[in-house]
Amino acid sequence: MNFLNIDKKKFIVFGLANKKSVAAVIGKTLLAEGAELIHVVRSEERKKTAQKLFPDSRIYTCDVENEENIVRVRDEIASCIDAENGGRVAGIVHSIAFANYSEGMKPFHETIKADFLQAIDISCFSFIAIANHFKDLIARDGSFVTITISTTRMAAENYGYMGPVKAALNSSLCFLAKSFSDFSNIRFNAVAAGLLKTSASAGIPGYVDSYLFAEKAILRKKALTTQEAANTAAFLLSDRSSGINCQTIVVDAGMEVNYFDKDIITKAVS
């Protein structure tokens, strides 16, 4: 038995887009520990990508912006696993975020309502909806893990309204855990990752410069890897983390304590 004790246990991973996705790296990490994977992706195009990366895993499609799709994919997955392992999965990963800056980047106070509400729907409410509709498919001591950002208290201009959206996602953890405690021991936690080199991040205006700055601000002067975030997610999905609930676990290699790094200060004021 390996340390995580997830061998032959089933996990559902929402959100894979390509090989650089956090969801993809989490999936590879779980597979390496002997787990069985079920991937849920947004489109048929992404399904083809997922099938190449995970040829032995079941792949389903679901655009979470339409809640009926979440119900549909729940039923599709349930019909396939009902006879296996009591029809239960050990954990579910939510690695979904979307922002449509329909008129380009604007000052936060000029945020467009439709863009903000769509981002809340896809990036936050989808987590709540997945938890609700999949509650009977997850083991009574199972684990939900979502992916968020290392801090929602820093007003990064190029991240725009997604900071408050992620804050809403973080806040949902304790409310979901409290609701589920009436009938289970299911836990809800988040991996709050620092800046990562993913395709989705690359689409954020000015992200490369922010990423390079983060590398200088990290104590070890080396960027955070997606694998490091995935390792934390795998731990939170396992019963080795059974005492952790309603927590946002920051994975930033110590960046949050080092904004007054002397080298950065010297370059900034010179």
Rank of each mutant, 00 (worst) to 15 (best):
N5Y: 12
N5L: 13
I6M: 04
D7Y: 12
K8M: 12
K9A: 00
I12R: 04
V13Q: 03
G15V: 07
K19R: 03
K19M: 03
S21M: 05
V22I: 11
V25A: 01
T29S: 08
G34I: 15
A35I: 12
E36Y: 06
E36G: 02
R46H: 08
K47H: 06
L53F: 05
L53D: 10
D56Y: 15
D56P: 11
R58T: 09
I59F: 14
Y60K: 13
T61G: 14
T61V: 15
T61M: 14
C62Y: 13
C62W: 14
D63Y: 12
V64F: 05
N66D: 10
E67W: 11
E67F: 11
N69L: 08
V71D: 15
V71L: 14
V73W: 15
E76P: 09
I81M: 14
D82Y: 11
D82M: 12
A83S: 13
N85V: 10
N85Q: 14
V89S: 00
A90S: 00
I92R: 07
I92P: 00
V93F: 03
H94P: 00
S95V: 06
S95P: 07
G104C: 07
F108W: 02
I112D: 11
F116C: 09
L117P: 13
Q118W: 12
A119V: 09
A119T: 12
A119Y: 08
S123R: 13
C124K: 14
C124P: 13
F125C: 15
N132T: 03
L137E: 03
D141I: 04
D141R: 08
G142A: 02
T146A: 03
T151R: 10
M154Q: 09
G160Y: 08
Y161W: 04
A168W: 13
L169M: 14
S171G: 15
S172N: 10
L173D: 07
F175R: 10
K178D: 15
S179H: 12
F180W: 12
N185D: 15
R187C: 10
A190H: 10
L195T: 15
L196F: 07
A202M: 12
A202P: 05
Y211M: 11
L212P: 09
F213M: 12
E215F: 03
K216R: 13
I218H: 01
K221A: 06
A223D: 01
E228K: 01
E228I: 00
E228W: 00
A230Y: 01
T232V: 02
L236D: 00
R240L: 12
S241G: 05
G243T: 07
G243I: 04
Q247A: 08
V251G: 01
A253F: 01
A253Y: 00
N258F: 04
Y259R: 14
F260V: 06
D261F: 04
D263Y: 00
K267C: 03
A268H: 06
